[in-house]
Design a protein around this nucleic acid. Structure first.
Lengths: 116, 116
DNA sequence: CCGATCTGTCACCCACCACTGACACGATAG
DNA sequence: CTATCGTGTCAGTGGTGGGTGACAGATCGG
């Protein structure tokens, strides 16, 4: 399973930061991401992007000389979540309850607000 | 957030294997865990156990000269799940659908010893 | 065609992590 | 008290991964 790669990819703080940027911007070019990541240089961001892509956590869309990256919710992230839920039998309700409105930019009501 | 430590702890295959053992056995002494982990020696298992404990993923119960470890669903695992759900807006329904309420003790593919 | 831009890749260096054997400490048995 | 068991920890070593600057390929603008 490539969940191994995904776990490894998720272990790096910079990569999680990149995922955060992607989650907030929905889609971003490599350069735009690198601008928002100040802890490391553009080269490192590029490498991290590759790791995330190979791990199946983000998707890539090429357009001209730009490459737009975006979160891939259907990728190996699902495996990771499933695995985690198998090991830690955390109630899904509790988890969704712990994710109220911490994202002002996201209007995705995936988890039923209030009482689902 | 100590989710950083948790992500780091989860990145190691051996540690995930240990978590798999713990998830299957519910509670295990350090020696018993080490017996079930054949890829590395007892010393390494002990160190991994410490990492998992510090990360807030497992709990420790001391009894005599034994130390029993167990999954800690209320620990930082919750933060990890929350974070992951924030970034990857995976439908919780789908995930819960993939995780049966009772987990069969036979097919536990949590730990991929990779090349074992 | 030529230059500028966007991005990925390479070689290199450094740091960190994991693994092991040896040793130390607490606990139980006799 | 002494021997032994169960575990954790320490020092040493080696491999792997991350960061950077330089370079290469591709694409747009003039």
């Amino acid at each position: 399973m490539d969940a191994n790669l995904a776990f490894d990819a998720l272990a790096d703080p910079v990569r999680r930061e990149i995922l955060g940027v992607l989650a907030a911007e929905d889609e971003c070019s490599a350069g735009a991401i690198a601008e928002r990541i100040t802890s490391v240089g553009r080269t490192a961001v590029s490498t991290h992007l590759k790791v995330l892509r190979v791990a199946g956590l983000v998707g890539e869309r090429r357009e001209g000389r730009f490459r737009y990256y975006s979160i891939d919710p259907a990728g190996s992230a699902r495996d990771v979540l499933t695995l985690l839920h198998q090991v830690f039998r955390t109630g899904l309700q509790s988890v969704s309850d712990a994710v109220p409105d911490e994202e002002p930019r996201s209007r995705h009501a995936v988890h039923g607000p209030g009482t689902a």
